[in-house]
Amino acid sequence: MRLALGISYNGQAYEGWQSQPSGRTVQDRLEHALTQFAAQPVSTVCAGRTDAGVHGLMQVVHFDTALHREEFSWMRGTNRFLPPDIAVQWARPVPDAFHSRACATARRYAYVVLESPVRPSVDAGRVGWVFRPLDDSAMQKAASMLVGQHDFTSFRASACQAKSPVKTISRVEISRRGAYWRFEFQADAFLHHMIRNIMGCILQIGQGHQVPEWMGQVLEARDRDAAAPTFSPDGLYFLGPVYAPEWNLPSRTAAYDWLP
């Protein structure tokens, strides 16, 4: 049978999602826990890889197994072997045709950024930080230039393995609650470091170092050197993939209600 799991994690202690020789990745810890629970090797495929320090509110993975257990058993049994900062939120049997990455029609991320003269403390690693005031109108104008299908070469990491730099961003939303800003992105797919590089530019504009029109110039340049430095992974959350209703999978976890 094929199973899909929804995973949440705090990425601060890990070297990203994808398995590494060090074993200090979220995928390594998850597969180790699943293997212990199932008493047989388990290999997973994820909806979207995340960088070191990036958090996940609903990463989705799938895997095949001959072991039959109730959904709650897969959730609670696997969580027994996971560290406190990783947890299976739900488990669902899915058809063999389901593929966590290929069946996703979109992916969603959110950046939470603290605007304060004082650096984060209790929320260190969970939020990004700027100490200069941000201009909402300027950032909104700049962000609107990113919506649609574009060549995002200027926001692509040199190590990116994507076949094409052309992606379609369907939504960029910027909101504020107190001292915390939330930047939410949805696209068919993202390039390596794409959101972190976009955020570097948005914050340069928000702090008045560049005018909003600069975002369009960076986009048109198709040159990584034209953009701002990559922003810190602190405060970046993978909200999860979007699937067609026919797969009958959850679209959110309880952590959505906690995130500002």
Rank of each mutant, 00 (worst) to 15 (best):
F231T: 00
T50W: 07
V166F: 04
L191N: 04
L3N: 02
I86S: 08
Q186F: 00
V61H: 07
I205D: 03
V118G: 00
A33N: 05
G77T: 03
T50C: 09
H68T: 11
A106S: 13
A39M: 13
V147Y: 03
L249K: 11
T65R: 09
H192P: 00
H209A: 15
C160Y: 02
P212V: 07
G48M: 04
A47S: 15
E246H: 14
P95C: 08
C46R: 12
W181H: 06
D257H: 14
H209S: 14
S158K: 12
D223L: 06
P165G: 03
W214F: 14
L191I: 01
L191A: 03
M145D: 07
F231G: 00
A97Q: 15
V26H: 12
L34W: 10
I7H: 07
F155D: 05
L82M: 05
A52G: 08
A106Y: 05
W17I: 08
M58L: 13
D96L: 15
T168L: 07
I7N: 08
C201R: 01
L249Q: 11
A187D: 06
H209Y: 13
V211N: 05
V113K: 05
R80V: 03
T50M: 09
A91S: 14
Q161W: 04
N79G: 03
D28E: 13
R224S: 03
W74F: 08
Q204A: 15
I7C: 05
R76K: 14
W181F: 02
M194E: 09
R176G: 09
H192V: 00
F183A: 01
A104K: 07
A227Y: 06
S170T: 15
A179V: 10
E70F: 09
L259Y: 07
N10V: 08
R177M: 12
H68N: 07
A52S: 15
A102G: 00
P117Y: 08
P212C: 06
Q161H: 06
W214S: 07
V42H: 10
R126Y: 12
E246R: 15
E71V: 04
R69Q: 14
R101G: 03
V127C: 14
S116R: 01
F185I: 01
L191Q: 04
S164M: 03
S100R: 04
P229M: 03
R107C: 01
M215P: 04
T105M: 14
Y14Q: 08
T253N: 09
M139F: 09
P93Y: 14
N79W: 04
A138D: 13
A91M: 09
H32L: 15
A189C: 11
S8Q: 14
G235L: 10
V130F: 02
L146W: 04
P260R: 11
G56T: 01
C46T: 10
V113F: 04
A4M: 08
I174Y: 10
G235D: 05
E184D: 13
G208K: 07
T78A: 12
R92W: 10
L82I: 02
I174M: 12
H193Q: 11
Q140Y: 01
W74P: 02
M1T: 06
L30I: 04
A13V: 01
E70P: 00
R119V: 12
Q161V: 08
L82T: 02
